[in-house]
Simulated scan of single mutants.
Amino acid sequence: MCGNDLIFIYLFSDFTHVNVGIVNGTEAKPHSRPYMVSLQMNKTHVCGGLLISDEFVMTAFHVCYHDGVYSPVLTVVLGAHELQKKSGNLVRIKVESYHQHPDYSSKSFQNDILLLKLEKNAQLNDNIKWISIPTEEGDIEAGSVCSVAGWGRLETNGKESDRLMETNVTVMNNNKCESKWTKEDFSASLMMCGDSGGPLVCGNTAVGVTSFGDPDLCNSPELPEVYTKISAYLQWIKSIIGNVN
């Protein structure tokens, strides 16, 4: 998926480097990723997120940031696979509160992370489960094959997919990523790189959330997608929601 159809919607007037996407993906087995949620406005999908406890969803801060204005008007939809299909299994929960990282920068995309507290706890079942996050700070080994998933376009400016899609990605060496993006854009302590876009999951653990990529080309060979490294924010996360593992 590309553009505004992944784990985050990109609502900036300045599209310097926010286009990310899943390309060459396949449809996920329905409900095989029960942690994936659709964040919606007026019952329309605008972005995705990760359920990391029975009452908190993680996404990027700029999902709610448009033209310099913070506009958090979202409903969380759990248990979804095909978004337009009316199903009694879908659960809609309003967001009670929004917790953005206080040091988020719209220029550098550093600290691009947001926690959404649900109005009520999610009732877990086969289609709705939360995913673990790292328990300690650390890097994912370069060359590791992980996976991403999301709803939306399958190529740059291409046709949208209503069903959850997935693909594998390879984690890139931090030095190589920094050489492609420059130190001004890429911070190895707070970010990591892969070869496609979306919520980054390694094994059974969510390790990254999509932050930015090439503004013109999904899955660019020259400018790899960059993820906010979840393990770099454990103290901040625990200060808001406690230990979820």
Results as ranks from 00 to 15, higher is better:
S71T: 15
V73T: 12
H99R: 04
V63E: 04
T16S: 13
Y104F: 15
S108W: 00
D14I: 14
D14T: 13
G79W: 05
K107Y: 02
N121W: 01
Q123S: 14
H31Q: 06
Y104G: 11
S87Y: 02
M41G: 11
N121K: 15
M41Y: 13
L118Q: 04
D103P: 05
G88R: 10
V23T: 10
N42C: 11
N111E: 02
L114K: 05
D54A: 11
K129C: 09
V57I: 14
S38P: 11
L50V: 14
K85N: 08
S106E: 06
F12A: 13
G88Q: 05
K29I: 14
H45S: 03
V20E: 01
K117F: 07
N121G: 08
G79R: 11
N111K: 08
N111W: 04
K129G: 12
M41R: 15
K129Y: 02
A122W: 05
K86R: 13
H17E: 03
K29C: 01
D67A: 12
K120W: 00
D103S: 14
N42G: 10
N121T: 14
F15Q: 12
D67F: 11
V57S: 02
S53Q: 05
H101M: 08
H45G: 05
F15M: 06
L83N: 00
T26A: 08
V77I: 10
Q123K: 15
P102L: 02
K43L: 09
N42M: 12
L114R: 04
S97Q: 06
L39G: 11
P34G: 14
L51P: 05
L116V: 10
N121C: 06
M36V: 14
H45Q: 09
E119L: 13
M58K: 03
I52Y: 01
S71Q: 09
E82H: 15
F56H: 10
N125W: 06
G49V: 05
K107G: 00
N125P: 09
H45N: 12
Q40N: 12
F109K: 08
A122L: 10
Y70N: 07
L124P: 06
F61G: 02
V76E: 00
L50Q: 00
A122R: 11
K85Q: 09
R33A: 07
I52D: 00
